[in-house]
Design a protein around this nucleic acid. Structure first.
Length: 908
RNA sequence: GCGCGGGUAGCCAAGUGGCCAAUGGCGCAGCGCUUAGGACGCUGUGGUGUAGACCUCCGCAGGUUCGAAUCCUGUCCCGCGCACCA
């Protein structure tokens, strides 16, 4: 056979044109609840990479599969077209972000066409055009109307390289690097616009439980990110020690100061009797206050404090805090492990029951008191016993951090931790139950040009005024190449009038985080050209949520959380009737090269363009989809690609030679074997497609091709059977390798596109298929074993004997029966008892394996399966194989025959 | 440290209570086809065995069960995410 391959470029071009001409991927507006299959839209970098190809091949294959099943399908594509790289590229190339972006979009759209994605391009969405981003502005106003927008001074993450603010989510790792350029992030204090996602924190958290179509990893990452914790907030009175000491030699004496009370948050208020110190963050207002007068504190705050370090460090102060439960005075430290953005930036230290507090207390010489004892076995949690029964644990070496029973805790001793937390929170005057979140409000201000202008005008008299809807969009001015924010430099654009009072005013020069764009783009696809609303609410309610969403794990938190937030707000205020945007989510795995991620910097990138031109899109797609489960990473392999290409080439030759010289064989036993395998492949592959397990579906499909090859090699095939097999193969392959499937479908003389063909169906059930295959495989293996073990060099004849009917009956009875004496029950059947010793012996076998007995194939089905598979044995051993009934067979062979395990007699 | 995934033959992966010494691919070996090679097809790839059997085996150690790669507990290792989180 040829190893030249086939002219994939011609095949692919031909069908891409044909699909275009026939507009086959169009989803009309009037369809009812189409299956919505969506890949996360790309940033238009200009080059499709392997990750894109994998992502969109998954959605494309699934969309095509659903379409062949007869569904209406919505499979759109768009561009996440705002963002910093365009701005940087424009500066480098002395162009402007818009031209650069549109150029990239054109290139990527072409590339998507060349890999054969079946997209409804009439629904294309591009976020950087005013027709799209005006709705970002409109939505900003709606959020503002609903009190979900806030402007406040905030300490923000600032990337000095990108000259912009970053969301917390865009700061990566312990080193706090910018997600785009890996520059260490600094902090700055700026007035920022926030979307109050924390208002939805509880729902965003709790609804995760119902996102059953999402991977657990993503759900867990979102839970962690929201980070809800129940605890107690309570006040500690802070005061100076009675005798203020000299702050420094020759320095002034510090006056006693009143610091009032300080709020602290704890999840373990049950340990409060063990609180032996109090600690403040270095940037806590009191710490900053102290630093002015206390040189030790100042030195610590300015020089020593190292929040990133592993060691907890701190400095003693002259202050004491009053433990609100015990009234005791405890020392106050400024410590670098206390973080101002966690809890309240102040905490009570319980060294007996917290590892970090323990380490700190040891270092600073603070008392370590045990107040929680491990819960004794079998104790009723609510009962207050006399406490003295329990020994306090030894916490001198290490803290005891579990819940338990309180000891050394006054009237609370004897309570278990949980009850004590409630009681103490009720009893302490300043204490109340509170909930803390790690989630912060979403700062959307960016000091960059290429984004959606925040639709706000600043007026000296009226303050910050949102631009009225009728004045939207606020369009971006012409790009100017400048070092700072081009919007700041666009004077003419910036100067405007206040919509409220008409006086002179200036425009807000910040633009929105591009995650705003992507938080609702999936809604825009239902009505991409609508010009009086962001989306058609009625159609959105009909078409959404997205049935299958596919994207990279890198968006597990940000994009997916923001989209959920937007959907909930739109449900509350804009008439959406669903509260979650994505029904099923697939986070696809990486495409790697030799075990590591492809990246330009490592120079280990495989270019999809090269693969497409060398082997064709069908090969690239098929290789990727068969290489691994879609959510697992896999290694790109040139060898694998070549063998996939060879597979497609051979398939093409098989179809062509079938058409050129149709076979003339009979519908014999071999044909019926092939027939069974066609049904099996169709049944199994269909199920696997449904679950997006393309690798398994394709394995089944490729196995069927192999079966067809074997068939044609062994005998002159029955043309109907063979054609039925080819037609099944082409349709099973069509979602993944659509061009060649289309070409060969046409070659077979079928009418219409394979894209629109009916998905093949089979009535066989998978369990039955597997039993049949198992029977055939086991029988072949048994024959091999016998031939080898018995040293039979050249078998003359092989008889395969199906078990007598009464054994099937007996097995049936044994499976059904729960009688203690199975033999007795079997012997009550006349036709079994008549078998005498054989029945007794088989009955004993059944009894022994009673719990493991399994439903066999029916005797007829078993016989048929063996007869149709006989050719495999004949071919292998070059001897005639006869399947015979027990009645006509040699007694010694019949004895060994059981349901699911025929007797075998090999005659030399 | 917490959470989520994983650990199966030389390698990569399937299997998730009995059809399991365990599926497929790669690699390797033998046979067929071939002048040869490639491609393709068949077979083998833990051990023993003169009739389909037996022994050992799915990270390690226990346990549940008539029966465990599969369920439970503990433990080690790898990947991902979060984290001086009060």
């Amino acid at each position: 056979m040829s190893d030249q391959g086939y002219d994939h470029a011609a095949v692919e071009g031909r069908w891409q044109d044909a699909w275009d001409d026939a507009d086959v991927y169009r989803t009309p507006d009037d369809v009812d609840d189409p299956t919505y299959v969506l890949g996360m839209y790309p940033y238009p970098s200009g080059e499709l990479h392997m990750g894109h190809v994998r992502n969109y091949t998954i959605t494309d294959a699934y969309a095509r599969y659903r379409r062949m099943r007869g569904d209406d399908v919505l499979h759109p594509m768009g561009w996440d077209a705002f963002g910093l790289p365009a701005e940087n590229a424009a500066k480098e190339r002395d162009t402007n972000p818009q031209d650069w972006t549109f150029d990239c979009i054109d290139r990527m759209r072409d590339q998507m066409g060349s890999i054969g994605l079946g997209i409804d391009w009439d629904r294309e969405v591009t976020t950087c055009v005013p027709e799209y981003y005006r709705w970002n502005q409109w939505l900003f106003s709606r959020f503002h109307d609903e009190g979900l927008v806030d402007r406040r001074d905030a300490e923000v993450n600032w990337c000095p390289h990108c000259e912009t603010v970053l969301a917390d989510e865009q700061v990566e790792g312990e080193a706090e690097l910018c997600w785009r350029c890996d520059t260490p992030v600094e902090t700055r204090e700026l007035e920022q616009w926030f979307l109050q996602i924390t208002e939805y924190a509880d729902e965003l958290l709790e609804a995760i439980d119902d996102l059953e179509g999402w991977p657990n990893s993503v759900r867990q990452m979102q839970r962690n990110w929201i980070g809800r914790q129940y605890g107690t907030e309570l006040e500690f009175d802070i005061s100076d020690r009675e005798a203020p000491r000299a702050s420094n030699e020759g320095g002034e004496r510090s006056e006693p100061r009143e610091h009032g009370s300080v709020e602290a948050f704890t999840t373990r208020v049950d340990t409060i009797y063990g609180a032996t110190f109090f600690a403040l963050a270095p940037d806590h207002p009191i710490s900053e206050d102290l630093a002015e007068t206390d040189d030790d504190v100042r030195h610590f705050v300015e020089q020593e404090a190292d929040p990133e370090g592993d060691e907890p460090k701190g400095v003693a102060t002259d202050l004491t805090a009053t433990n609100p439960a015990t009234g005791e005075e405890i020392p106050v430290f400024v410590a670098d492990f206390v973080l101002s953005d966690v809890g309240t930036g102040a905490l009570m230290g319980v060294p007996g029951h917290d590892d970090r507090d323990h380490e700190f207390a040891e270092k600073m010489g603070v008392a370590i008191e045990p107040v929680i004892a491990p819960e004794p076995e079998g104790r009723d949690g609510e009962t207050v016993d006399d406490g003295s029964v329990l020994d306090a644990p030894d916490v001198s070496e290490a803290a005891y951090t579990e819940d338990g029973v309180l000891v050394n805790s006054g009237e609370y001793s004897g309570l278990d931790s949980e009850a004590a937390r409630d009681r103490l929170t009720d009893d302490i005057e300043s204490a109340e139950h509170t909930t803390q979140y790690q989630l912060r409000d979403w700062g959307i201000s960016r000091q960059r040009y290429w984004g959606t202008p925040i639709p706000v005008v600043h007026c000296d008299d009226c303050g910050a005024v949102t631009v009225p809807d009728e004045d939207l969009p606020v369009e971006l001015p012409e790009f100017v190449n400048t070092t700072g924010n081009p919007l700041d430099a666009a004077d003419e654009w910036k100067q405007t009038n206040c919509p409220d009072c008409g006086g002179p005013a200036t425009r807000e020069t910040d633009t929105m985080d591009t995650f705003v764009d992507s938080s609702w783009y999936f809604l825009r696809y239902v009505s991409p050209d609508l010009d009086d609303a962001p989306f058609d609410v009625e159609r959105a309610n009909d078409w959404l949520p997205v049935d299958q969403y596919v994207g990279g794990i890198e968006h597990a938190v940000m994009h997916l959380l923001y989209s959920r937030f937007f959907t909930k707000v739109l449900a509350d205020h804009e008439g959406l009737e669903f509260r979650e945007p994505f029904e099923d989510l697939l986070a696809h795995g990486m495409v790697q090269l030799e075990g590591s991620k492809m990246s330009k910097s490592k120079g280990n990138v495989v270019s999809p363009q090269r693969i497409v031109s060398e082997y064709g899109a069908d090969t690239a797609r098929l290789f990727m989809m068969q290489a691994a489960q879609p959510d697992k990473a896999f290694d790109w392999s040139e060898e694998g690609v070549r063998s996939t290409y060879a597979f497609l080439t051979r398939l093409r030759e098989t179809v062509e030679s079938f058409v050129a010289e149709p076979p003339t064989g009979d519908a014999d036993a071999v044909a019926s074997y092939v027939d069974g395998e066609i049904d099996a492949a169709v049944a199994i592959a269909g199920e696997e497609y449904e679950d997006l397990q393309f690798n398994r579906a394709l394995r089944e499909t490729q196995d069927l091709v192999r079966t067809l090859h074997q068939y044609a090699e062994y005998t002159d095939p029955d043309p109907e059977t063979f054609e039925r097999g080819l037609s099944a193969v082409l349709r099973l392959l069509a979602p993944v390798s659509p061009h060649l499937a289309e070409e060969l479908w046409d070659e077979l003389g079928r009418d219409g596109f394979v894209v629109d063909a009916d998905w093949p169906t089979a009535t066989v059930d998978r369990a039955g298929v597997e039993r049949r295959r198992r029977l055939v495989e086991n029988t072949r293996e048994d024959v091999r074993d016998i031939v080898e073990v018995a040293g039979i060099a050249d078998p003359e004849r092989i008889d395969v004997v199906v078990a007598p009917d009464w054994k099937y009956d007996a097995l049936e009875i044994a499976i059904e029966s729960d009688a203690p004496n199975l033999i007795g029950e079997l012997m009550s059947e006349d036709h079994i008892r008549e078998q005498g010793d054989a029945a007794a012996s088989y009955g004993q076998d059944l009894q022994a394996e009673r719990e493991a007995l399994q439903e066999p194939l029916a005797p007829d089905a078993e016989r048929e399966a063996l007869e149709s598979a006989a050719w495999l044995i004949e071919r292998e051993f070059d001897a005639p194989v006869t399947v015979i009934d027990a009645a006509e067979a040699d007694e010694g062979t019949v004895k060994n025959a059981e349901p699911g395990r025929p007797g075998i007699d090999i005659v030399e």
